[in-house]
Write a protein that binds this DNA or RNA. Structure first.
Lengths: 325, 325
DNA sequence: TTGTACGCGTTATCAT
DNA sequence: ATGATAACGCGTACAA
């Protein structure tokens, strides 16, 4: 900056002002400074800026997995929204692991983010302490609680599981099975579904866990297992994600089963491909776009007015009836 | 740090040392310092550290799209590898746009990353200048060139397109069509395929561009268009990604066409679901895992020994013959 | 093994 | 409208 200033015939401070508050600098010195910046190829040092101003314009975000399209698309919206307000997002994957999340929180906090996004409402005690100590806005997404660390935006997974149970029961199904990926929130939906459906139908639900991330292959294998090993025959299958449901659809067809005639299949998430499958997938729609932008807006609001009141955003969900159930 | 030091009865520097070079501090002062850190909840300020040491331990990465699983999984590997070496990755989406990439490069450079990853080998002139000026290791991925900015790791897209043309021709196909997403590298594969296939078969190839990102829906619509509007009937369809090919498979089945009997379908990328489709998808395998880790290793090598020699890593590709072609 | 002094490149405050 | 000066919180060099 000093070098740029020398070239423009002003002091270092004026260069700083030209960059941060151009309106406080006279038009022609501004131009000279801009020319000098152009000529020198000067790139401001945001580290120094953040150190001096105590604002990093960095927002850190912790998601379980980047390769899960659900989180990836959420983050894309969230990042775009924040970028348009001059913030950059520092992203990490926790791998659905609370301890790993805790370590990442410490690492991220050392970069002094202006705010932080966390996925889910379950965090280690140490994590909560660090966050509280950091004294920055925090938003927890994809779930809802009455006592967020700071703010939360998401929906109620127990309600969602129950709603699906009611929906399938009302379609006339008396038997049901579930196929769930190894994700705490999905498991919560599963048990809510299972409990409600059993209560309604009087029949036990066959619950299965893929033991890993959701994928088409995992869905195929899970249905195969359900049919071959546990004797599941007819009824409804509630999958914890559209990807699993997609696999179920493929496996069912490969076995000559008709969907929904022989077996009804329900997904979760309403991913873009859900409507393009044959049969089109009945699923639970989550407004991921809204999730991302509400989370971003919530943080931005706190950043501007630290005493903003609303802190719990329930975005709900919607059952989308298509052809598969 | 000074406060921690007071509590531990040492000076600020000793605290700094305890954190960065624990072996240079006597065991019991080390313990006292650690206790003090624990007691105060001290979190080191990486911004100040980076400013003083001129090493940010930050590596910035620019990818076209996060919601494209291909890039997402690549980045997951890349990030994990770097994290295990004490680096954090600052990630942004360029949206396949060179101008947007150029702006992001400037923003990222202001955070003084220790290295940078770029996708592709085509960048604006200004971008190249900034990067050269920053004087940090740069790796360009997903493509190969003789004159990278610094290093590159990927494969040759023209060779890939040609190889697919040869493969399909050798399978006995005389007619072919292509369905390509709006991606510069995919378009390069398309035209190499098209040229080679025409040369071999003497028949023109029906090239189509989805005009947007790859998706199952886009694949369905593209095949429908190909059949309904351009009169494509039998032959091979080369899709620029497995996702498009997946859509083609669905649309073909919905129209009662047999794959590969009536129509052969080929994808690109060998995504995890490719083997789980019916019929299993014939595709071109790219070792994304290797791509991510080689890119990370290349940067790490440069960071340790700035004069490391090798700078071009051709990881190749492999045609995976399954059932669809 | 520990401490002192200084500088990293900005922004904030106060003057002019 | 512009400048001088003092932080910001740490690492490095050098000294003890």
């Amino acid at each position: 900056m000093a070098a740029v200033g020398r070239l423009a015939g002003v002091s270092q401070v004026t260069v700083s002002r030209a960059l941060s508050h151009p309106e406080k600098v006279s038009p022609d010195t501004l131009q000279r400074i801009r020319d000098a910046i152009e000529a020198t190829g000067f790139v401001p040092n945001a580290l120094a800026g953040a150190l001096a101003s105590k604002r990093s314009h960095l927002i850190s975000a912790l998601v379980p997995s980047l390769t899960n399209i659900v989180y990836a698309s959420f983050i894309a919206t969230f990042s775009a929204q924040l970028r348009s307000h001059g913030y950059q997002v520092l992203l990490s994957e926790t791998g659905f692991d609370t301890t790993s999340e805790q370590d990442l929180i410490a690492t991220h906090l050392s970069r002094r983010p202006d705010a932080m996004l966390l996925t889910g409402i379950h965090h280690s005690q140490q994590a909560r302490r660090s966050l509280l100590g950091a004294d920055i806005p925090v938003v927890e997404v994809w779930d809802i609680t009455d006592s967020p660390i700071d703010m939360c935006v998401g929906f109620n997974h127990v309600d969602a599981g129950r709603a699906v149970a009611n929906f399938l029961y009302e379609q006339g199904h008396k038997n049901a099975a579930t196929i769930t990926a190894n994700d705490e929130r999905a498991l919560r939906r599963q048990s809510a579904f299972s409990e409600t459906f059993t209560q309604l139908s009087g029949n036990a639900v066959l619950n299965s866990n893929t033991g890993g991330p959701a994928s088409i292959g995992a869905g195929r294998r899970a249905l195969a297992h359900l049919i071959d090993d546990t004797g599941f025959q007819r009824g409804a299958v509630f999958c914890s994600s559209d990807l699993l449901a997609h696999g179920v659809l493929i496996e069912a067809r490969a076995r000559g089963l008709c969907v929904p005639g022989d077996m009804a299949v329900m997904g979760f998430g309403d991913q873009d491909f859900a409507r393009d499958l044959e049969p089109a997938l009945t699923t639970v729609a989550i407004d991921r776009l809204a999730l991302g932008s509400v989370a971003a807006e919530a943080l931005l609001a706190r950043l501007v007015r630290p005493d903003t009141k609303q802190s719990i955003f329930d975005l709900g969900f919607k059952i989308l009836r298509r052809a598969s159930a």
